[in-house]
Write a protein that binds this DNA or RNA. Structure first.
Lengths: 255, 255
DNA sequence: TAAGAGCTTCCATTTTCCGGAAACCCCGCT
DNA sequence: AGCGGGGTTTCCGGAAAATGGAAGCTCTTA
């Protein structure tokens, strides 16, 4: 349910920029409007510092201030964000294929990329009568459990794989695989098959199948998945379908 | 005579945040991927400064760097941008109504907000056989010409109206109204009627009708419009349709 | 091999940021 | 009116952090 880790990854970011970004980080889906005091509290900054920095951000349009004094994320930031090639860019070319998948299967379709040791969901189409899925566009999740996660982890740089497999692996259900050696074998399977199957790893009633999307050079840059009810006898058929769709998206991206 | 200048040179050098934002501003729809040198050139900053700042932004995830050394807008920024209430937030609740409008009329449907003295298009649904429209989601336009623009200007704070009417008004076609007095009368009509009609103001083959979207307090926060071929005899009928739709969206927002 | 274009690191200098404190503002309460 | 509390804004001396020229690196091209 909860994305594992939110917030800024630790790292030496200069004071000014760091603080400004801490403030922006105080906004999330449940807090789209914040007072100055709330912002200062959530970012753990002195009030006067928060005030000064928010004022600067306001001048540029990164944030806006309503007549009620509440701060909100500004349009300028939205415009900038829309330029992210791995976000809206990818989403745009993949969308028609995702819709096809959705129409054919009536299941949940998801598109995701990897950032660091996390999955970020870029698009999600809810299936009509399908299992409810907890993910949200823009949401994050661990790499180890979901269909998309396994695909992205299987094709991640070795350092990332080692980092993930070296640290304790979060358990979501009784079936969640937390043994590094077994995960390693699963990742090898994913690379060999060209798809992943994640059975009851996140919730006991769901199963997801994922497949890699590649750029022109063959590097894996994203993953698609279908999430279906656990016990579906068609998992392998769906996996092949997803794989085919992922290949079509890869071709569309290279064109 | 002069000792070699070390340290920060005197003069109108902006604050740190300003520089970082200048760098982000170097990205646009035509430049989603930039090298460090291009970035420094476009932001008019020394190479080493650009390098240091981009590095900091990278650590946080505001920008990303591909294996090819090119900088791109990062996912983190996209996530943040998606939290803008006036952008994606508004878009989300208005979308079903916009789709209804699109289905009923088969024309171009647009949703926009005002930022400063400009219109920002938040969503746009292209009509099937309709006039081609020049606008782009995230794009900007003058307040004086379009259907949405007239609505937003008519309900803008007096300072904004005076600023716009006081400066020379851009002309797009032979029909564009550039006389402040006449524009004032048009704005009064918009307020009285609850809709705007912009006939051949932007291109000679198009006409657009717009209506205001209000928040709970009755303040105008956005506008919807239909763009149809000039000469349509149904302009007033469409205007009433748009007005009704805008009212429905207003109610949905207040709920 | 050399030249060129771009990227990264270094560091002496001083500009800009920091944040406690105090004033300010707007309510609701007595 | 007078009072108290929560949030917001402004101020300013001290100190930390930002700055950018230059030198060193890494590629690619001639």
């Amino acid at each position: 349910m909860n994305a594992p880790r939110r917030g800024r990854p630790a790292g030496p970011t200069g004071p000014v920029i760091g603080r400004a970004l801490q403030l922006l980080d105080a906004f999330d889906a449940e807090h789209r409007e914040l007072t100055l005091s709330e912002l200062a509290r959530r970012a753990d900054l002195p009030l006067s510092t928060a005030h000064r920095l928010m004022h600067e951000l306001c001048l540029w349009g990164a944030v806006e201030r309503g007549g009620d004094g509440l701060y909100r994320i500004g349009l300028r930031l939205w415009e900038l964000g829309s330029l992210a090639p791995r976000g809206p860019g990818l989403r745009e070319t993949a969308l028609p294929f995702l819709e096809d998948l959705s129409l054919i299967t009536r299941e949940n379709v998801q598109l995701a990329v990897r950032e660091g040791a996390e999955v970020v969901f870029v698009e999600r189409i809810a299936g009509s009568g399908a299992v409810p899925v907890l993910t949200r566009v823009g949401g994050r999740f661990a790499l180890t459990a979901t269909g998309v996660g396994l695909v992205l982890l299987a094709h991640a740089p070795v350092e990332v794989q080692e980092e993930v497999l070296g640290s304790p692996i979060e358990r979501y259900t009784a079936e969640t695989v937390t043994d590094p050696a077994r995960l390693r074998r699963m990742l090898a399977d994913v690379r060999a098959n060209g798809f992943s199957i994640s059975d009851r790893q996140v919730t006991m009633d769901a199963l997801s199948v994922g497949a890699p999307i590649r750029d022109r050079s063959g590097a894996v840059i994203a993953a698609v998945s279908l999430v279906v009810r656990h016990g579906s006898t068609t998992a392998h058929a769906l996996a092949r379908l997803v794989r085919t769709s992922a290949q079509a998206i890869s071709r569309a991206l290279s064109a």
